[in-house]
Amino acid sequence: MWFPLLAMAVAVSLEPFRIGMTVLMINRPRPGLQLLTFLAGGFVMGIAVGLVVLFVLRPALGSAHFTLPRVQLGVGAVILANAGLVAAGVLGGRRDNEASGSPGPLRRALDPLATRARRLVHGRSLWTAGIAGLGIALPSIDYIAALALIVASGAAAATQFGALVAFNVVAFTLVEIPLLCYLIAPDRTRATLAVLYDWVRSRGRVGVSALLAVVGALLLAVGFAGL
């Protein structure tokens, strides 16, 4: 359980949107508090959803059909599909074509709302950072697959809780490390994050898709072996 779970968490931590939000938070007023609030919001949502799935919905998932090999096969197939979508640029890719051409009527109508949203995003309110953290940790396909893997492992409740915490800690690595680095070298941290974000957007998806493909193939192999 641990290797595929942590590998999935690493892939989640490299999502361009997640890194982009970290870059945004570190460039707002009071960056340290912004990052800390953003991180706290993400942890609250991620742990809360995980606890509900693991310990409230767990009896419903404990049927005879919900076995570890079957879950490994299902999760492996989902991860391989995600790897293909990431490699193709469907997930985490740039949409440069949206910026071309003249704005249509709908875009012109939404411009005032977009302007207000930009003011809110670039403001100093910690509520915005907290809500962004909550939103970024909303259950995704990857997270639901990770929770299914934890449940199907049949490990003790304490071990499952530890796996849940470990997944979230790794998934938020690129928020935690910049937060610590910012306290030591603020300007250098900003510059490094900006370079990392540009690299992930341009070439990083190849590495992320390769990691997902390896994890997916491994889970399929282990699942078939366990049937």
Rank of each mutant, 00 (worst) to 15 (best):
M1W: 03
W2L: 15
L5M: 06
A7K: 00
A9C: 03
A9S: 01
V10W: 11
V12H: 15
S13V: 13
L14I: 09
F17H: 05
F17G: 09
F17D: 09
R18P: 05
I19G: 02
T22Q: 02
P31F: 12
L33F: 14
A40W: 06
A40Q: 07
G41A: 14
G41F: 11
F43A: 08
V44S: 03
V44Q: 01
V44N: 04
M45Y: 05
M45H: 05
G46H: 04
G46T: 12
A48C: 07
V52N: 09
V52T: 14
V52D: 11
L54T: 14
L54S: 09
F55H: 13
F55L: 14
L57F: 15
L57I: 09
L68W: 11
P69D: 03
R70Q: 00
G74S: 00
V75A: 09
A77G: 07
V78T: 14
I79M: 06
N82E: 09
G84K: 06
V86H: 07
V86F: 12
A87F: 10
A87C: 05
L91S: 08
G92V: 10
G92Y: 14
G92H: 12
R95S: 15
R95E: 12
S100Q: 13
S100D: 14
G101C: 10
G104Y: 14
P105C: 02
R108Q: 15
A109G: 14
D111T: 15
P112W: 15
T115L: 13
R116S: 10
A117T: 08
L120C: 10
L120I: 08
V121I: 10
S125P: 00
S125Q: 00
L126Y: 03
G133S: 12
L134G: 03
L134Q: 07
L134Y: 05
G135I: 14
G135M: 13
A137L: 02
A137E: 02
P139L: 01
I141W: 13
Y143I: 08
Y143V: 13
A145S: 15
L147Q: 11
L147G: 12
L149T: 03
L149V: 06
G154N: 03
G154K: 04
A156E: 10
Q160P: 04
F161S: 07
L164I: 05
V165C: 02
V170Y: 06
A171M: 05
A171D: 03
P178F: 04
L179T: 01
L179R: 06
L179W: 11
C181V: 05
Y182V: 03
I184S: 06
I184D: 08
R188A: 13
R190H: 00
L193K: 01
L193V: 00
Y197W: 11
V200Y: 12
S202P: 08
R203L: 09
R203P: 09
G204Q: 11
R205G: 10
G207T: 07
S209K: 13
L211V: 02
L211P: 02
A213W: 08
V215Q: 00
G216L: 07
G216A: 07
A217K: 10
A217N: 01
L220W: 01
V222F: 01
G223F: 00
G223Q: 01
F224Y: 12
A225E: 00
A225C: 00
G226Y: 06
L227M: 10
L227E: 08
